[in-house]
Amino acid sequence: MKKSLFTMEHARQLTEDTYELVLSGDTSAITAPGQFVNIELPGKFLRRPISICNWTEDALMLLVKVVGEGTKELVRCVPGTELDVLSGLGNGFDMNLAGDHPVLAGGGIGIAPLYGLAQRMLERGQNPTIALGFRTGKDAFYVEEFAALGCRLLIATEDGSLGVKGFVTDCIQAVPECDYVLSCGPLPMLKAVHSLPQLKDGQFSFEARMGCGFGACMGCTVPTKDGYKRVCKDGPILYKEEIVW
C-alpha cells in the first residue's frame, strides 16, 4: 500500500451514470489487475474504494459509476485537482492459474478490472474470451475498447438491445471449452457464474462496504470455508473452492 497524491487529468462520461477517469501519479504500488485504490474526498469521513481498470508507470485509469454524493463529487473533479490516494490495495487476479483460454466475465461496473486483466493476459500469450453483461444497450460501456483488444467478445443484455438477450452466464455457456473463469460484478451475478457446472475453477472479485480499505477495521469480512476473510486485504479476489454463499 502506498499513500500519494494523484492529479486528475480528465473525466469522460461514458453513460448516464458511468465515467472514465485518468489520474497521473506514482503507480509503483500496483502489482496486479484486480487491485483497487481508496480515494479521499474533501468533507467525506470515509475514502471511496474504486477498482483499477488499467494503469501505466505514471497514470491510473478508473471506471466509476455514480452511486452517491462521494462518487458524484469524484467524477466532477476538474483537471488539475489533486486527490489523496491509497494505491496497491487488495490481492488482484492471479493470471498464472488461469490457463491459456479462460473466460473473463463481468457485469455492469464490474467489467472495469477485466480490461487491464485482458490486456496483460494477451501480453503473456494467454487468449481469454470476454463475456460482458449489462441491463440494456444504453447501459453498456467500453465495448469498443474491449473489442479493440482482439479477444473473442460476447455481450448480453437483459432486454436484448445489445448482443444476446439474457445474462453473462448465457455467454459463458456459449463457450463450453472455457472451464476457468475470472469474474467481477454484482453478487447475484457472481453466484450464478459460480454455479455453472462447466466451470471447474476460477477467481471471483467481491465488493463490500469498506471502512479503512487496508484490513484494520474488519468491516468488510465475508464468510469462506476457511473462516471469515477481509475483502479489502485477503481479497477482493476469492477462489471458487473457498466461497460460501
Rank of each mutant, 00 (worst) to 15 (best):
M1A: 13
M1Y: 12
K3M: 09
S4E: 15
L5T: 12
M8T: 10
E9Q: 15
H10R: 15
A11C: 15
R12M: 09
L14N: 00
E16C: 00
E16Q: 12
L21I: 12
D26W: 02
D26E: 06
I30W: 00
T31W: 03
N38I: 01
E40S: 14
F45G: 00
F45E: 13
R47L: 02
I52F: 05
N54I: 02
D58M: 05
L60T: 08
M61E: 15
L63H: 14
V66H: 10
G70S: 14
T71F: 08
T71M: 08
K72G: 11
C77D: 04
G80R: 03
T81Q: 04
L86R: 10
G90C: 08
G90F: 01
D94R: 11
N96P: 03
L97K: 14
P102L: 01
P102G: 05
G107N: 01
G107D: 04
I109M: 01
Y115C: 03
Y115L: 15
L117V: 05
L117Y: 09
R120V: 09
M121N: 03
R124C: 01
G125N: 07
T129E: 01
T129L: 07
L132P: 06
F134D: 05
E145F: 05
L149E: 11
G150E: 09
L153G: 02
I155L: 13
A156D: 10
D159I: 07
D159Q: 05
D159P: 04
F167Q: 13
D170C: 06
Q173T: 13
Q173D: 12
E177Q: 11
V181M: 05
L182Y: 06
S183M: 11
P186Y: 02
P188G: 07
P188I: 09
M189R: 06
M189N: 06
M189E: 09
K191L: 13
A192R: 03
S195I: 04
S195E: 15
P197S: 12
L199M: 11
K200N: 13
D201N: 14
F204N: 01
S205E: 12
E207R: 00
E207Q: 08
A208F: 02
R209Q: 12
R209A: 11
M210Y: 01
G213R: 03
F214V: 14
A216C: 11
A216W: 05
C217V: 10
G219W: 10
G219Q: 14
V222E: 04
V222C: 00
P223M: 03
Y228W: 03
R230M: 14
R230S: 13
V231I: 13
V231T: 14
G235Q: 01
I237V: 15
E242S: 14
E242N: 14
W245E: 13
